[in-house]
Amino acid sequence: MESWDPAARGVLRLPSGRCVRGRGLRRPLPEGPAPGFAVHLLGRRPAPVPWEARWLRWPDFRLPADHEEASRVLGEVWSRAASERVEVACAGGRGRTGTALACLAVLDGVPADEAVAFVRRHYHPGAVETPWQRRYVRRFARP
């Protein structure tokens, strides 16, 4: 399976060239190809989708319920993004999604203290909404 078009809406291109799409699940699915793998960052189990997906319990405006599981899942997202269309999504597509994308940037070699700015510059200026989400990114380490 091919990766995302780096110019497509919601796609963050990491320094390595890996592309990950972030989106809000409250909005309609974007036109174009579907993801091959998705991680849904929600407080409650999401509805099923027709592609492989994983639920990471992550309440709105908070942090992942299980930090070790979050590290493992985000490591898998980063690895799979090298050759697949991978998506991370929360309800609105900004706070939790932006935090996860910033963690992926750290995995990709962006210094942790620069990752939030990187995601705000290349994904959405309102990404990573809370001080504790920013602190989580600064402390994030590869699994």
Rank of each mutant, 00 (worst) to 15 (best):
G17H: 10
A34Y: 10
G10I: 05
V11Y: 03
L12N: 07
R18M: 05
P15A: 09
R23P: 11
R26N: 13
S16A: 12
P28H: 10
V20M: 04
P6I: 12
A38K: 01
F37Q: 03
R18V: 03
R27Q: 14
V39R: 04
V20E: 05
V20S: 09
P30R: 11
A7E: 15
R26E: 11
E31T: 15
P28L: 12
C19Q: 03
A8K: 02
D5P: 04
L12H: 01
L25E: 10
P15W: 07
G36R: 11
P6A: 12
L29T: 13
P35R: 11
P35K: 08
L12Y: 04
G10L: 11
F37P: 00
C19E: 01
G32Q: 03
F37K: 03
P15R: 01
P15D: 05
G24L: 10
H40T: 14
R26T: 13
P35L: 12
L12A: 05
A7D: 14
G22F: 07
P33A: 10
F37L: 14
P30H: 14
S16V: 08
P35Q: 10
L14R: 01
L12F: 10
R23V: 05
V11W: 01
P35Y: 02
L25F: 08
P33C: 11
A34Q: 12
S16Y: 07
V39C: 01
A8T: 08
R27G: 04
R18K: 08
A34I: 00
G24P: 10
G32K: 06
P6C: 09
P6D: 07
P28E: 14
G22K: 06
L12S: 06
L12Q: 02
G17L: 12
R13T: 15
V11I: 07
L14H: 02
L14V: 06
R13M: 15
L14E: 03
R18I: 07
R26L: 15
E31G: 12
L25R: 14
P28T: 12
L12R: 05
R26Y: 06
G10W: 08
E31P: 15
V11Q: 06
A38T: 06
R13N: 02
V11G: 06
A38H: 00
R21E: 05
D5C: 03
G36N: 08
V39W: 03
V20A: 06
L25S: 13
V11R: 04
P6T: 10
G32R: 02
A8Y: 06
C19H: 01
E31D: 14
R27T: 11
R13L: 13
S16C: 07
G24Y: 07
R21D: 04
R27H: 13
H40I: 00
E31N: 04
P33E: 10
H40M: 09
G36S: 13
R27L: 14
R18Y: 02
P6H: 12
C19T: 15
C19Y: 04
P6Y: 09
P33D: 11
C19S: 08
L25C: 00
S16K: 11
G24V: 09
P28C: 10
A34D: 12
G22L: 00
G32C: 05
G36E: 15
G36F: 01
A7L: 11
R21V: 09
C19I: 01
A7V: 03
A8M: 06
A34F: 13
